[in-house]
Nucleic acid binder design. Structure first.
Lengths: 200, 200
DNA sequence: TGATTATGTCACTTGACAGTGACTATTGCT
DNA sequence: AGCAATAGTCACTGTCAAGTGACATAATCA
């Protein structure tokens, strides 16, 4: 048995990840984590100051909001924004840990401090997107980018975080790629229809 | 102190409601509920068979998915669907308990049996809406009603359940009526733009 | 080699928790 | 009044939880 702080830290973070994916972040207690990691719980206190610190690290390092570059340039405003938002959602959908983190943040029962990488990352990413979009494209008058972006992003992320959920939403089971593609397509249609000059 | 089964049942359900609103449904344990209700915990077992039964009753009777009649007739397909979906979301937004229930269902960590009134109500309502819409209106070809409806509904409900959440979403704080109205408007714009013949 | 520090183990306290059995008091009916 | 069913109280068990102090073992460096 190797004695290495780094290895132990990783074991603990891996354990949190597994538990969070399996049972949710609410289920991450000291004892459960220690057992899952095969490590003494006192090390959680020593290396992370407690469960909060550990979970915090896991979220910050492994479940932060996707940072998918920026706007795809060249295309129209609608398709640029669409592809950016879809990329984010696709990234969340692909990472179970991120799904759980997003859902957890959404409940509002998580410690704000701990889920900050989620909410703050989301805000940073979206406002950056908005700025870039406004810099490169002339948006239609009376188009409420924030409201529209919030609605589409909320829809996409809520649905993305329902992967492996087992309960359908309007008959769609986002677990299936085919159904998810329909959602992506709907988002694209919406943004292009409202953002791109229809009389082009 | 009055001895009445009905009164006690109500006290218990009220207690669950208060705890769920304050700390979430995950925080509803026998002891917490009994203390909050000012009632002995054994009565939870007697009258509801346990916490699950109690919480189940609360969700079924007080937090089910909104059953807001049906399509407003007369108007166009887009505005009919929009007003129906917005009514649902508005109803959720107005009832803190429903917000928490919806968010809880979305995490996927709740017992499926218990949150069934949410998911099943949602499915029933949405499919009824779809049927009614298709019966009364001719939808545009290649318009994916399910995907579009799922996306908009998911967005609306996720945002609606963020009331009293304290963390903004794309800069919008849905707690403020003004911001919420922008969301509603965005949903309406989307559905009308894609569902109503633009060349009318 | 010996001393120091880092790493990991163990045992324990304290409290919260779910659940149950035995009891008392009240109500309602005859 | 007397009896049975209902409503509510109390005390208790065993389990799991967080957190801590004392100890043992390995690595590092003088």
């Amino acid at each position: 048995m190797e004695r290495d702080r780094k290895t132990t830290r990783t074991k603990l973070m891996d354990a949190v990840e597994r538990i969070a994916i399996r049972d949710g972040f609410e289920a991450c207690g000291v004892n459960a984590i220690a057992q899952e990691a095969g490590v003494d719980k006192v090390l959680i206190y020593r290396y992370f100051g407690g469960v909060d610190g550990l979970v915090s690290s896991v979220i910050a390092e492994r479940a932060a909001w996707p940072n998918t570059a920026a706007l795809g340039d060249g295309a129209s405003a609608g398709s640029a924004l669409a592809s950016a938002l879809i990329d984010q959602a696709r990234d969340i959908r692909a990472r179970p840990l991120a799904q759980h983190a997003v859902a957890w943040e959404a409940t509002g029962h998580a410690d704000r401090e701990i889920t900050r990488p989620i909410s703050q990352g989301r805000e940073a990413q979206l406002t950056a997107l908005a700025t870039a979009l406004r810099a490169r494209h002339l948006l239609p008058a009376r188009f409420d980018l924030e409201a529209m972006g919030a609605l589409v992003t909320a829809g996409l992320t809520m649905l993305a975080s329902r992967t492996d959920h087992g309960v359908p939403f309007f008959g769609l089971d986002v677990e299936h790629d085919a159904d998810w593609r329909r959602i992506e397509k709907a988002a694209g249609t919406i943004l292009r229809a409202l953002l791109d000059p229809s009389d082009a």
